[in-house]
Amino acid sequence: MPKSKPLMAKSSGTDAVSAAVQSALRTLDAEGSGIAAMSVALQSDLGGAFARAADLIRSAKGRLIVTGLGKSGHIGRKIAATFASTGTPAFFVHAAEAGHGDLGMITTDDVILALSWSGEQPEMKTLITYAKRFRIALIAMTAERDSTLSQAADIALTLPKAREACPHNLAPTTSSLMMLALGDALAIALLEGRGFTSVDFSVLHPGGKLGAMLKYTRDLMHTGDAVPLKPLGTRMSDALVEMSSKGFGCVGIIDPRGAVAGIVTDGDLRRHMRPDLMTALVDDVMTENPKTIRGDLLASEALEILNSSKITALIVTEAGKPVGIVHLHDILRAGVV
């Protein structure tokens, strides 16, 4: 009689998942410890250097030149992009390429932010020499206070030592995250110091989902004859024709001065349904003092008002008078979600 095959342990898949999750938790714990150590450092020696670096970048006539190589270079690219998108003109120059012509991108009005965990890469020496020769301000971001880069810099942002998440303490993980976090902190400090607003942000982010969320109501609203409007004293039969022809499910009611006095919606029709509804006046059916919005309101804010009020359209006003109407579908079509 053939022997039965041994059953495979059902827990193997679960064990693999558990091991992966435990590894992830160790990684996050290690990287979190690095961020926590940096928070402590900012409240002591690192804080003064950080404030001086922010002042130096803010007062620069030129741009912020972020440089690095390896993992620090990848982080540097992202830091430069964050600065540029938050009001500080910046771009990335690869430290190795700098010595092969890219030094020409850097002017005497610029400030260099050089990233290097050890502060001893040979490629950095070309940048250091160039900065010293033309008196270009140099900020170092490194973990070694006595490194060549730190000693040559006008300001050294010395990061606290931290163990990498890699079990061999080799692959840049915690160190890369700390550099990225400190770069973000610098960018946001400058953003807040300049009073950089969502309006400024929208100018630099016209595309994609961010661009859609930063559009103004006036960019999406319907204007002119497309706006459903009728004066006080209009019979409901005429108001209903206006509602149906314009297709917004409502009609704004204006007073003799041209200001919005009320609105008649599909909901108002249902609430006042009676045999003589078509001969009644809009004055008796409309909702008085309806919600309206300004044309300079962000589309994302308009969407929030529509959702919270459980309505589908808003009349856009200027000094109390209607200048347009925006529908929920207009905002969704623009990509604001």
Rank of each mutant, 00 (worst) to 15 (best):
P206T: 11
G335T: 12
T108P: 06
I331R: 01
H329I: 11
R145A: 10
M286W: 09
L204Q: 12
M105T: 10
K321H: 13
L190V: 01
A187H: 10
I35A: 11
V336G: 05
D276G: 02
I254C: 11
R77W: 01
P290Q: 04
R77I: 11
V199E: 11
I136L: 06
D238N: 08
G211V: 06
I35W: 01
L182N: 07
G295S: 08
A302C: 15
S147E: 03
D238K: 09
P256K: 14
G70E: 07
A319Y: 09
R135F: 05
D219W: 06
D255I: 09
R135G: 14
A137H: 09
H74Q: 11
K246N: 07
A24Y: 09
V111K: 12
D330L: 04
M179K: 04
A80V: 00
S44R: 08
V260P: 08
S12T: 15
V40N: 06
K3W: 13
K132E: 15
T67W: 02
A212Y: 06
A95Q: 04
T173E: 08
K125D: 13
P122E: 14
T88Y: 03
R145S: 06
G73C: 00
M221Y: 01
T107D: 13
P89S: 08
H272Q: 05
V323N: 04
P275Y: 13
S300Y: 09
R218E: 15
M286P: 06
L314H: 11
G183L: 02
N289P: 03
D284V: 12
V199M: 07
D184P: 01
C166G: 06
T197C: 00
E192T: 13
A261H: 12
I75C: 03
A96K: 05
L220I: 01
S245A: 11
T173K: 12
V227E: 09
A98L: 07
G87Y: 02
T174P: 14
A30Y: 04
Q22C: 08
Y216T: 01
R52D: 14
M179H: 10
G104P: 14
I254A: 02
L115K: 01
I57M: 00
S300N: 09
I315Q: 02
A259N: 12
T279R: 14
T88N: 05
G101P: 14
L46C: 07
A137E: 15
G252A: 13
G249Y: 04
I155L: 08
V326K: 00
L240S: 11
T158C: 06
A185P: 04
